[in-house]
Amino acid sequence: MSAIREGTYGLLAEFDSPGDLVRAAQAAYDSGYRRMDCYTPYPVEEAAEAIGFHRDEVSLVCLIGGLLGVAAMFGLETWISVWAYPLNIAGRPYYSWPAFIVPAYEWTILWSGLSAFFGLFALCGLPEPYHPLFNAPNFRGGATSDKFFLCLEATDPKFEVAQSRAFLESFQPVSVVEVEY
């Protein structure tokens, strides 16, 4: 992030129940909002569906990691046994693929596990030491315990402070807060 951003990050509506949140999120999506997010203390799949959450790429990253792992280890073993340091082991051929399978398998697991782990962090944009939503005191207090939040972000073309606030208030949230960057 090059420049310091100023102004409104978005409007944050607080709800007491996941049902209210999903209804509001669904209505916001239906009326054309796209840049928004739901924040809940536990996974609510309906909320993700309501805001049109698309598929993530973690599985693809994991697959690529696994393929790289198996290729790397199998290649390494082949290179060592056939070219770099050929050893006669019980008269077997240098290229004894059955013996290569187990380490290659281990590296498949290792690389796919690590790439899934770090890929998830990267795709989530973590680590993120600062997030504007933490400027809202009710978010800090409730987002991880018992409150359900919907944030309409100011970058959405449809976003307009007064109108969007009125839109959110029509769902009778506990509060609607304007969050600064």
């Binding site: 019980a90 077997r92 059955p98 013996a99 399978i101 187990v102």
Partner: peptide, 12 residues
């Protein structure tokens, strides 16, 4: 299946 094969292949 592979473990059985690998063990017997190694033992030869």
């Amino acid at each position: 299946a592979f473990a059985a094969f690998l063990i017997i292949w190694s033992g030869n």
